[in-house]
């Protein structure tokens, strides 16, 4: 493809090709602190292609695909090229990664022990991880937590944090502007702005840790917390995993071990500051 870049996030190397220059330039600038492997061997190829014969020039629009793709994926405007590249990488991980059990979760680490937060889009897991990452924790990732099949450790996938809507203002208040990407207005998921994790998160992106606490956060409710039984945790995590079925017995064993060893709670919270206080208290108590 005409424009390309090869970069490494956690354990995975991506070769991203694009029919346009702009998305690659933006990736190069926002991922400047990450390992670049020009001409290296990649685990996955991502392709940003014109969505139709004329769509390279006329109302340019991107079809996201690669080694793994979804035929029905909706085309995206070239203005949102950075988001398209991010989605392309996520797609490869979700459909193709086999070296860990992939859990749709954010994770942060302190003293070698890991807090994992899982929930649906809008639960607040991404924003909380980003905030904790600015306040003494090491951000491991806002999208996928990688559970090692043999050791039970969680490994990072610290791509750019994708902040949505209200979370953008919350984080831009405490993060220097040079670590924030351009505002991508009116995407299918609303406004999006990317956050570059702090240096430590990137430098230590191959370093895992033992999971110590599992949370199911829920934003927008009165403060509340409840224990979650192992059976429920197991079911929710199978649903939050994109490769649980593909990994077969190895995935079952790794997930069973996680569920049996790590305490789990559901927390409801009305604001980010409430949530962080609840999390720090739980961490002292349980982890």
């Amino acid at each position: 493809m005409r424009h390309q870049i090869t970069l490494k996030i956690g354990p995975a190397t991506f070769r991203i090709g694009s029919a346009w220059r702009d998305p690659i330039d933006r990736l190069a600038s926002l991922y400047a602190a990450y390992p670049m492997l020009p001409g290296g061997i990649a685990d996955f190829s991502v392709r940003l292609e014109p969505a139709g014969p004329l769509r390279q020039w006329l109302r340019p629009s991107i079809f996201i695909t690669g080694d793994h793709g979804l035929a029905e994926a909706a085309p995206m405007s070239l203005r949102h090229g950075l988001l398209a590249a991010e989605m392309g990488m996520n797609l490869q991980m979700a459909l193709g990664w086999r070296r860990h059990l992939l859990i749709h979760a954010s994770s942060v680490e302190k003293d070698g022990r890991v807090l994992v937060m899982t929930g649906e889009s809008g639960s607040g897991k991404s924003t909380l991880a980003a905030q904790l990452g600015e306040r003494g924790w090491r951000l491991m990732g806002d999208e996928f937590a990688l559970l090692d099949l043999a050791t039970g450790q969680i490994f990072p996938f610290p791509r750019l944090v994708s902040l949505k809507n209200g979370a953008i203002d919350v984080l831009s208040a405490e993060v220097p502007p040079d670590r924030m990407g351009p505002l991508l207005a009116n995407t299918a998921k609303g406004d999006i702005r990317h956050l570059v994790p702090r240096g430590g998160a990137i430098d230590r992106m191959e370093e895992g840790g033992q999971p110590a606490l599992l949370l199911f956060p829920r934003f927008g409710h009165a403060a509340d917390r409840r224990d979650v039984g192992q059976a429920e945790v197991f079911m929710r995590l199978t649903q939050a995993s994109t490769n649980y079925v593909a990994l077969g017995e190895a995935g079952f064993l790794a997930l069973s071990r996680l569920v049996q060893r790590v305490p789990a709670h559901a927390i409801d919270f009305p604001s980010g500051d409430d949530a962080i206080a609840m999390i720090e208290a739980l961490w002292e108590e349980r982890a």
């Binding site: 290296g40 061997i41 685990d43 193709g96 086999r98």
Partner: peptide
Amino acid sequence: VPDAVRPILADARRDAEREAR
């Protein structure tokens, strides 16, 4: 094969085993 290729091929073999099963 180069080190970077080995896990890619190992993943593919595991996928094929699962397919067969």
